Amino acid sequence: MNRSPLRRAALPAALLLSLSLAACSGANESATPAPGGSSAAETLSGELSGAGASTQTAAQTAWAAGFGATNPDVQVNYNPAGSSAGREQFLSGATDFGGSDAVLDDEELTQGQERCTGGNAMDLPVYISPIAIVYNLEGVDDLQLSAPTLANIFLGKITTWNDPAIVADNPQAQLPAGPITPVHRSDGSGTTENFTDYLFDVAPDVWTAEPDSDWPLQTGESAQGTSGIIQAVTGAAGSIGYADLSQAGDLSKASIKVGDAYVAPSAEGAAALVDASPEAEGRPEGDIAIELDHKTTAAGAYPLALVSYALVCSAYEDAAQGALVKAYLEYVVSEEGQQAAAKSAGSAPISATLRTQITESLNRIGA
């Protein structure tokens, strides 16, 4: 079966994040040029609106602040309403750019041709983060899990921590006999789809449900949003869940089996996974959709990660607005922008190779 990269994603309740960065500055004040920045001879001004993946919230805050430092007359507003809402609002023309943990599907790409005034919509991977398996189990700090074991836990077939399958993954651990409480998202979520996509790819004989942004089973307990998962696992001994590593806090994180080794979640491991993964075929010009290779055995790669995308047009009806989008995204993918996101959100900076590809796509805007 040929599956395109994750097609659906989260739609949590919208919470407007207004990043108002317009600042008073003298008419003759010059700014130091920077990635996506401007000089006295090329002053950017106006307002940019975006909406979408809540996973990008902290990163978008950092990006808007950094961009605003050299472009004080530009205001960037990002509404973390969820990936589905981000795609819908971008395709309807309600926003200048979108954020999504899943790429546009074929139907949405067709809509993008109309929205983008003769051009096409492009998915650009701007945010990479590992998905951590978080757990609350006293006395067990270095839990190791293979994909089949993990799948059976969330299927509800492995119900106690001293089950033989978990013991086999953790021969040195002192595992208690207590019950396991798996916790999944109650809302549609790109994190859920990435997690179920991983299980579907790596443990297909165990996990047979198609990847989906909505939890596909009537098992375990549910919680609203990433914060709900973290709160539920923190508050219940013996529980286990999945969440963006940047929000996992002090909870214990399991290492996932890759080949013959177990790899802990890290930004570097997620970046290694992306670099080891191919691009999806049959996409429009300028579109960069990553087909995550969850089965990779590349050194240091962590197999369970999330790639979140910026959605932009190759052509905007308002050329000046297109120039603003281009300048902002140039900052987002710059080394400075990626380091700002890494510091703020714990994400993995994109590679130099991927940065070059995205820059080539951005150069299509207004060309």
Rank of each mutant, 00 (worst) to 15 (best):
A13S: 13
P284T: 07
D260E: 15
A264R: 12
V183R: 11
G156D: 12
G188L: 13
L16I: 12
G68T: 11
F90H: 10
D141R: 11
S30W: 04
P182N: 11
A298T: 15
T196F: 08
A58G: 00
G322H: 08
D212W: 00
A232W: 07
A53G: 06
A352C: 00
G112E: 07
Q357R: 15
G66P: 10
A9D: 13
A232V: 01
V307Y: 06
N28W: 04
P80Q: 12
D141N: 14
L15E: 13
Y328H: 14
A23D: 12
L21I: 06
T149A: 13
V206G: 01
Q89I: 00
A34M: 07
D105A: 11
A341K: 05
G139W: 08
E221A: 14
G225W: 11
S252W: 01
L354Y: 02
A276C: 08
A236P: 00
A272C: 03
V258S: 14
L17F: 02
T110S: 13
V263F: 08
N152H: 04
T70P: 00
G118Q: 08
L91G: 09
Q174Y: 01
K253W: 02
D73V: 00
G50K: 05
A340L: 05
G52C: 05
Y127K: 00
A299R: 08
A203L: 11
G52Y: 03
L251E: 11
P179Q: 15
A320N: 09
A348H: 02
A320W: 02
V333P: 06
I290A: 07
N152T: 03
D187E: 15
D169P: 10
A121W: 11
A270F: 02
N170Y: 01
A254S: 12
Q113D: 04
G228N: 11
T196S: 13
M122D: 05
A58R: 12
R87H: 01
S4N: 09
S49K: 14
A299D: 15
S334T: 04
S20F: 02
S100E: 09
V76R: 06
S83W: 07
T110Q: 14
G228F: 09
S4Y: 08
I131M: 03
K253S: 11
P148E: 10
T356P: 00
S351L: 04
L91I: 08
S100T: 13
D197M: 01
D201H: 09
G50H: 06
G225K: 11
V167S: 06
P35C: 02
Y316Q: 11
A69D: 13
I229K: 08
S344W: 00
T191S: 15
S277T: 04
N152G: 00
A345P: 04
